[in-house]
Every structure is written in C-alpha cells, then in structure tokens.
C-alpha cells in the first residue's frame, strides 16, 4: 500500500522511524489523562440549565470566593513584581556573600509541597509566631485573615517572576546603559527609559504566571486563611466544600469558571511570552 498524498503532506519525510507509534501513544495518553477528564467537566456543566449555572455562579458566597481568589492573587502578583524585580536586579547586577545560596533559595516555593508551606507560614505569622508576634503589637494580624492569604500567594508566586525576568536582565547589553549615561541621562532616567522597556515584557509575563498560579492555589492558602465564608474563603476551597456536601452541580459550575479563567490566562501568557521573545531577539 502506498502512502496517500495527504499523509506525505502531513509531515515532512524523514529517515528516522517511529513517528506513527510515538505520535499515536502521545495523543492517546494525552487524551486519556488530560483531555478526556477536562471534557468531563464541560459535559457535566452542560447538563445544568443556563439559569441554574448563572444562579450558582452569581450566588453571594460564590461571588465572594471568586473575588477573594482573583483579587488577592492580583495583590500578591503585584507585590511579587515589585520585590521580584528588586531581587532580580540584586542577583544579576550586584555581588554579595552567599549569592549562589540566595539564588538557589528562590526555587524553594517550587520544590516545597504547598501543605508544608501552608503550615509553616501559618505558624510563622500566627500571633505567637516569630513574625506574627512582632506584628501583633502594631495591630496587624496576618494568620487567619485575607492578609494571610496574600502572604501565602506571594510565597508561591515569587519564583515565577524572578525566573522569568532573571535571564532577560542577564542578557541585557550594559553598553546601552553606558551609552545612555554618556549621552547625559541620569541613572534613574537610564533605568526607566533604557532598562525598563527591555525587561517590561518579561516582568509582565512573570506577573501573569504568578497571578495564574495564585488564582488556583489551594494547599498553602487553606491553613493560613481562616476560611471564613465571604471574607477569607477562596474559590478552590468552596469547590471542595460543595463536593463534600455532595452538591456536584455547584462544584462543577465553579470549577468551570476557574478553568475557563485559567485557559484565558494561558492564552494571554502565551502571547506575552512570544512578545517577550521578540523583544529579546531585537535587543540581542
């Protein structure tokens, strides 16, 4: 049997064997593990009437939970962009003792299980904890408040900003800054007009990655949050609560909102990354 023309057109001819087998296995496994389960969510949601779906999603408690998840993720991502930028600047441009160790520490939130981070942060920022006891006299309570949620989300989001911006700043040609300085720009002017535009796409990408991660975060948050409905209850926790109450329709509808949001974020992040790469190659 000869290969049909469409098959030849599908992929370029190669002497390397195994395309059919490996591609078949890849698509099958991807379908079984990722696509089929994800489509189960949409199938279950489509079983709800539109009015029911809207009623669940716009219920006061749901709206609050979504507001907490998205709003505090935004705050945490902003904190991470500001401090992440300072951390990157210090790591790339300055020398100081134990710099390698500090650099390696940045990845702790990637490697430390979220439940471990959750209980550690709670103990640390509780009223009798190392940090919490210092803040308590100032009237600042962190653990079991929305502020605690922000602390947890800052923790898990930081490496996304640092690891996205760090390589871009490291590749930045410092001769541009020298040129700006020699043309009479002050240091702040150089930073704002020369450095910032070059790292801006990477900063924005890091921001979006940290935000996307924070929106869906569960493990590190539930210990420190206090989980008061309407105040410090995040959307993923509400999904778990509805599941435990056997209110599958509610859990499914909220999960669909979260999933669609993460798809949109993924789309935006892909765009941002392409923009950042383009910017990077133009600077090089």
């Amino acid at each position: 049997m000869s290969a049909s023309p469409s098959r030849i057109a599908f992929r370029q001819k190669s002497v390397i064997p195994g395309f059919g087998l490996t591609m078949g296995l890849t698509l099958t496994w991807l379908g079984l593990i990722v696509l089929l389960p994800l489509s189960a969510l949409f199938i279950k949601t489509s079983e709800l009437t539109f009015d029911r779906f809207i009623a669940i999603v716009t219920a006061t408690r749901t709206l609050h939970a979504l507001q907490v998840s998205f709003g505090l993720a935004l705050v945490a991502a902003l904190v991470n962009v500001v401090f992440g930028a300072i951390v990157v600047w210090v790591l790339v441009r300055y020398e100081f003792p134990f710099k390698k160790v500090v650099d390696a520490l940045i990845d702790i939130p990637f490697a430390l299980p979220t439940a471990v981070a959750g209980i550690a942060l709670t103990a640390l920022y509780a009223e009798n904890g190392w940090v919490g006891s210092l803040l308590a006299p100032l009237g600042i309570q962190v653990s079991f408040t929305p502020l605690g949620i922000v602390v947890a989300l800052v923790f898990i989001g930081l490496p996304f900003v640092v690891r996205t911006v760090q390589p871009v700043l490291a590749d930045l040609d410092q001769e541009l800054e020298e040129a700006a300085a020699s043309l009479g720009a002050s240091r702040p002017q150089t930073l704002v007009k020369v450095v910032l535009p070059s790292v801006w796409p990477a900063l924005l990408t890091g921001f979006a990655l940290a935000f996307a991660r924070a929106v869906g975060e569960y493990g590190s948050v539930i210990f420190i949050a206090g989980n008061l409905p309407g105040v410090s209850e995040i959307a993923p926790l509400l999904i778990v609560i509805r599941l435990e109450e056997f209110r599958y329709a509610d859990a499914t509808a909220i999960a669909t909102v979260m999933l669609v949001a993460s798809f949109l974020l993924l789309l935006i992040i892909n765009r941002l990354q392409r923009w950042a790469e383009l910017r990077g190659s133009r600077n090089a």
Binding site: L38, A40, P236, I239, L243, Y248, L259
Partner: peptide, 17 residues
C-alpha cells in the same frame, strides 16, 4: 495545560469521571 489548572479542579475532573 495541566500546569495552568487549579489542583482542586484537577482532582474534581477525575471525580466527575
């Protein structure tokens, strides 16, 4: 794709199956 799905949603989809 799984990187951008909330862990809770990741668990839920298997419950729904």
């Amino acid at each position: 794709l799984p990187f951008s799905v909330s862990p809770v949603v990741a668990g839920l989809i298997y419950v729904l199956l």
